[in-house]
């Protein structure tokens, strides 16, 4: 039986001192839903685990300075139930609802999901579209803030230094007129890994009926989720119409063609993404027609 050690910091200060002793075989534990599997699958019997779940300062959702601050230890169930997130980050809530099963959502955390950096991670696509920034700390107690894209390397790897930990996710509080939606395609309705996912954030001027701002993020098409400017441009400054939906779909098909041409999944995904496009588009614009609210 190997040697495994657990460290259970109760606050940031203790966490920082744990980080000072980080070695090769140090594993950060948040909800555990991925780490338990990883240690068993890779037959890892020695090392140190820093259990972040006891760090109280990492468990909150609050709004300050026009930023929704989400502690890294917040679970997906907590995200779903949070009123700020329901109001201001619909796509994040929708993504959280589609993560794993009820049991998984009760344990898995947003910080853990980002650190794991799976190409199909639902929350990453949503956070990317929302322009989230990641706040963290290192072994010197230095707090850092980076773009989400700088933290996620992709293909289940992150770009964090060994002594760095994500402590908070910052989502800019989007002003009036902003709306968002998330969609996903798996092989079952629920408890399924995304074959494709998409989050779209728009600012819609209800008086002119024009899309004034737009961000489109796509997941499971590359080692990590990415923002598609070409698809965004198609929607920008346009008015919702059947023609716009067609253009949106075509732009997405092109994006898929560029991303995965030649792969076995390509013929399917280039069609399926148009279904996803319809879902997200209808969600965004139907909600508006009936005057908002979900």
């Amino acid at each position: 039986m190997g040697n495994f050690h657990i460290k259970t910091p109760n606050n940031i200060e203790e966490l920082v001192s744990c980080l000072k002793e980080v070695e090769d075989k140090t594993y950060l534990l948040s909800g555990g839903t991925d780490l338990v599997i990883k240690l068993r699958k890779n037959k890892i019997y020695t090392g140190t685990m820093i259990d972040l779940s006891g760090v109280k300062e990492m468990k909150y959702i609050k709004v300050e300075n026009d930023i929704i601050q989400i502690g890294a230890n917040i679970t997906f169930s907590e995200i779903i139930e949070n009123k700020y997130i329901s109001q201001h980050c619909t796509c994040l809530k929708e993504a959280a609802q589609r993560v794993g099963s009820t049991q998984i959502r009760n344990m898995a955390t947003i910080g853990g999901n980002i650190s794991n950096a799976a190409p199909c991670a639902d929350s990453i696509t949503a956070l990317m579209a929302l322009g989230a920034k990641i706040k963290g700390i290192n072994s010197n107690g230095e707090v850092w803030v980076r773009e989400l894209d700088e933290v996620v390397l992709g293909a289940e790897k992150n770009k964090l230094a060994p002594d760095e930990v994500i402590t908070e996710i910052n989502v800019p509080l989007l002003g009036g007129g902003y709306k968002s939606s998330f969609g996903k395609i798996g092989s079952r309705t629920a408890v399924t890994i995304a074959k494709l996912n998409m989050a779209v954030v728009i600012k819609y001027n209800e008086i002119d009926g024009v899309i004034e701002d737009v961000t489109v993020a796509l997941g499971a098409l590359a080692p990590k989720a990415f923002i598609s400017n070409t698809v965004g441009k198609v929607l920008l400054s346009e008015k919702p119409s059947n023609e716009l939906l067609v253009n949106f779909k075509n732009a997405l098909i092109q994006e898929v063609d560029i991303a995965i041409k030649g792969r076995a999944s390509h013929p399917y995904k280039r069609i399926a993404i148009t279904g996803l496009a319809e879902d997200v588009y209808n969600c965004l614009f139907k909600v508006m027609e009936i005057g908002g609210g979900n």
Binding site: T8, G32, T33, V36, I37, Q103, I104
Partner: peptide, 26 residues
């Protein structure tokens, strides 16, 4: 052993969780 089947479900602090995906010390 991977949180897909739920046969190991227990209730922890009022929530259903997979006991196969939780280290004991958690």
């Amino acid at each position: 052993g991977e949180g897909e089947c739920g046969a190991c479900t227990i209730i922890m602090d009022g929530l259903a969780v997979n006991s196969c995906l939780i280290f004991a010390h958690q």
